[in-house]
Amino acid sequence: MALLNLHLKVWRQNGSQPGHFQDIEAPEIPDHASFLEMMDIVNERLIANGQDPIAFDHDCREGICGACSMTINGMPHGPERATTTCQLHMRKFRTGDTIWIEPFRARSFPVVKDLMVDRGAFDRIMQAGGFVSIRTGSAPEGNSIPIGKDVADAAMDAAACIGCGACVASCKNASAMLFVSAKVGQLNTLPQGQPERQRRTLGMVRQMDAEGFGNCTNQYECEAACPKEISVRWITKLNRDYAVAAVKDIVGAGRQQAGGEGGD
């Protein structure tokens, strides 16, 4: 096992106050350690020197919970393809490297502290339609709706999204389209999601806009940054679904009004 001597430039920020980069030397880091274990070692040393350790979100450290969120050398989750920050290992770096470490930056992800941001906007988008309205206990027998393997597999591809927000952080417009398209796409692909297809599409897209995420201008940086390799094809599908839903919404609203006038 080799030891690496690294120079870190770490973003430090307290809530809404302005932040800055702090230079931190990180000598003798085992190359078998994960990136977050490197951060643990650095934090232990900061604490020993009476300094404030670096705050960052993390939990599972297995690439599945979506908590970890560092922009490493300008890339959300760092340089390795399809890998979250927590799954990145130090053997990908060389001794003497300077590593820039920043939070996931986006207008809709305000910094809480240092590398920790508030991604509550994602939860609110999900609340605006990311579900099938089925009450507990009222479900039909599981095998009563056959679903082709290809359909189930496609839905699973979209469902693999871990809600980390790297797509947003990588996008020059800070657009959340990849996340939203994956979430809408999963349910809109499955038969269970059909009854609420329009409502879901409109609700989630409108909430996304209300949260201040930017527009998608087809840069596709998001796909490259996504640790779960969510495909931009979902964005195409969302655009289609949205166009249909928006038209039906206008027509439907008219019809509802007309019906309302003559109703009982």
């Binding site: 039909p140 709706i145 393997k149």
Partner: peptide
């Protein structure tokens, strides 16, 4: 047995066989 029904109805993408069954 009810759990599986519930999760399927929510849109949990369980693995399927070619015939469409779970």
């Amino acid at each position: 047995v009810n759990i599986i029904d519930q999760c399927v109805a929510q849109g949990v993408p369980f693995a399927r066989e070619y015939g469409g069954g779970l």
